[in-house]
Design a protein around this nucleic acid. Structure first.
Ligand SMILES: [Zn+2]
Ligand SMILES: [Zn+2]
Ligand SMILES: [Zn+2]
Ligand SMILES: [Zn+2]
Lengths: 158, 158
DNA sequence: GTTGATACGTTATAGTATACCGACTATGCG
DNA sequence: CGCATAGTCGGTATACTATAACGTATCAAC
């Protein structure tokens, strides 16, 4: 399990690399990485925080890429269906995937103070959820794992 | 970690016992277990499935206990703040706590076919989320752990 | 060129949640 | 008791989130 954690990094390459990786994945899988879909991914990549659909829609609207909710939701649906972005249930919001390389069951750490969100990977079947499921004979298809709290910076400031 | 799992059980006592336990907790903590709050808990206990706020409000309305959204949301806020009920983020819905006895970090198993929801307990700091958090220096205040899939009955039927 | 699959743009509506106001009530204290 | 405070309540209005549905456009396959 790795995580870029909350440390500073070369953020400019985050966007470029993320879009490039997504484009390659779409190419490999014969998916249409249309302008709106790419732009939404760029918007999500532009900050390491979760964004609401309407927040994204505001940007699209300002750029003439569409002004109605379905435009944003359709792009987000595409991105999440193919693992290029994730939905954060706790926030009713979305974030670009930061582990495009391999299939994964994401764990999210959400700072309630600075709103940054970090995605960590981890083995799906393991852990508490997997144990509870096995014990109950439950077949997991999707797991939501989100922790809300304070990132190192904000915890120190408090 | 225990779970009543998806097995059948004496459901009548679920409601009575749940309300009694909640009443005692409120008494101990000097909380006001008002009629509306109690009724909402009863409604939640009446089925082992998550209910939306408006679904609950429909029942309250039919009984003359209030007809506007804040009535339901206030009661649900009280119940969740004091651990008598939990919010299921994945469903935007609520469910009565089935482990009123001890403080716990719940794990939910949500059957997408029959809509039953089972609450399992588990140690908070442990597991994948805890590990990811420690590694990132993140301070967890609340954890959302919800698995969606098929319960034993529905998995067998499929 | 017709067909089928996918994506797009738009309208309208459904579903979820909260801000706020004014009234009432429980509680504690002088 | 009289009063202050905090908690509760019912209601209006509004904000926020999400989807249904319809017609059109595009592209590749046959
Ligand atoms: Zn990811
Ligand atoms: Zn922070
Ligand atoms: Zn519980
Ligand atoms: Zn089931």
């Amino acid at each position: 399990m790795t995580s870029q954690a909350f440390e500073t990094h070369d953020h400019h390459s985050c966007i470029a690399d993320g879009v490039a990786a997504a484009a390659q994945i779409c190419n490999e899988r014969s998916l249409q990485f249309t302008p709106t879909r790419q732009r939404v991914l760029e918007i999500l990549l532009s900050e390491h925080k979760a964004m609401g659909a309407y927040e994204i829609l505001d940007v699209l609207r300002a750029e003439g890429l569409g002004s109605q909710p379905p435009v944003a939701y359709r792009a987000l649906d595409f991105l999440t269906r193919h693992g290029l972005a994730h939905r954060i249930e706790r926030l009713n919001a979305f974030i670009a995937c930061s582990h495009l390389d391999n299939p994964h069951a994401p764990v999210f750490l959400i700072c309630r103070s600075c709103n940054r969100v970090v995605e960590a990977e981890s083995d799906p079947g393991k852990g508490e959820i997997g144990r509870a499921a096995r014990q109950a004979g439950f077949v997991i298809e999707r797991a939501v794992r989100e922790a809300e709290g304070l990132c190192p910076d904000c915890a120190e400031a408090a």
